[in-house]
Design a protein around this nucleic acid. Sequence first.
RNA 1: GUGGGCGUAGCUCAACUGGUUAGAGCGCUGGACUGUGACUCCGGAGGCUGGGGGUUCGAGCCCCCUCGUCCACCCCA
Length: 414
Amino acid sequence: MPITAIRGFNDILPAEALVWRRIEETAWRIFLTYGFSEIKLPVVEKTALFSRSIGEATDIVEKEMYTFSDRSNESLTLRPEGTASVVRAYIEHKLYVAPVTRLYYTGPMFRYERPQKGRYRQFYQMGAEVLGEESPMADAETISMLMSFFKAVGVIGARLNINSLGCSSCRPAYKDALRVFLKDRVSALCDNCQRRLEANPLRALDCKGVGCIEATADAPAIIESLCASCSTHFDGLKSSLNDAGVEYAVNPRMVRGLDYYTKTTFEITADTGLGSQNAVAAGGRYDGLVEELEGPKTPCFGFAVGVERLSLLLGKDVAVKTPINVFIALGHEPRSKGSELIRGLRDKGMVVIEEFSEGALKNRMKRADRLGASRVIILGEDELKEGVVTIKDMATAAQEKVRFEELADRLGAS
RNA sequence: GUGGGCGUAGCUCAACUGGUUAGAGCGCUGGACUGUGACUCCGGAGGCUGGGGGUUCGAGCCCCCUCGUCCACCCCA
């Protein structure tokens, strides 16, 4: 048996890579206009970075991380998400000396899960983080930027859901209230929700189990129990989104799986194309994380986009086609003259592929066609004597002879 | 980790309740056409039916194990 790629780790073949390139270029172009700069981060970090930031009791840390010991017995982990690394770098390089820092990153993330549609063990995220800004206007602006990006890249039917998870001063009280509420109907909850009733009762709000949906139908909503500061922030977010013309729905049942979120959380879902993993982007505010990782108290907001999921929403027809010229030389002399001509065309940015095989022209034409040639340039002994090449347009089958000096202009024009 | 579907040629798929030598389209290759692809016609190559074990006179088909893959649960981008 030949060696294959490992489960959940995929090759992105050229046709799809073209879609990805378009996604990334569009994102960078738009994010740049909002003042973001790129940061390149390592793919491996010390394990403690993730257990401390994401939360010891989360599914990601408990059972989904690729953790291993290196040769000096240090516990390392393939990053399951990007925010922790951004914050680590922010603190490590003292980037907080700037009033506000806006960073974007992209790259592979790793989670040990069973692969399914839109979910892989190595998957790619593009993320953006605003560090050092507490205004809800930053939340709204960043979400708005993301929606603009989706629109520009061609996503249709994306829906924005927002919620607030409160902060360290109002969430504990809400959790208690919710626990009390749920204890009366604990038997209706699924095993999972019963188990995490103490640690994380919020999860029950998000659960798809029928019993859990019924049991939590008239549960208290967290947005009703926000403290003054969180409540003001949430109102500010909504009015800023309204001002920006961004449509949204408040979903008080939306709960995130990472512990560091405070105040604003949001999720962008698409109804078709994603299977049951319908979130294509998500994020929120994490005002306590920098401090938790021993940096100065710094309010932050950020999001991540799943590139595979976004790609599923776009289809393959977004790729830009540049004409491909295939060069066929017939014989030794034409070949060396051909090298010179090809160099000249490439210097002008044209795509030229030389067809090197030595079979019959018929077969070489066939190969050229399969290479995706939009035009074939033929140089044989006859042409060489005349100082011309034959250009054949593969779509129309029209053929013409063009002098060497005019070749580049002729190809560039059509 | 749990549940279900599917593994047959490079690709997409056939093969009646188990029955001769496992087929087709596309692709590949050679020719018709020795300097012209894509169209047409004719020929050819290509399969330990994912792997292993079992039942049977006989297994692509039934049973067990295993691997892979897809979808779903859990959870998440």
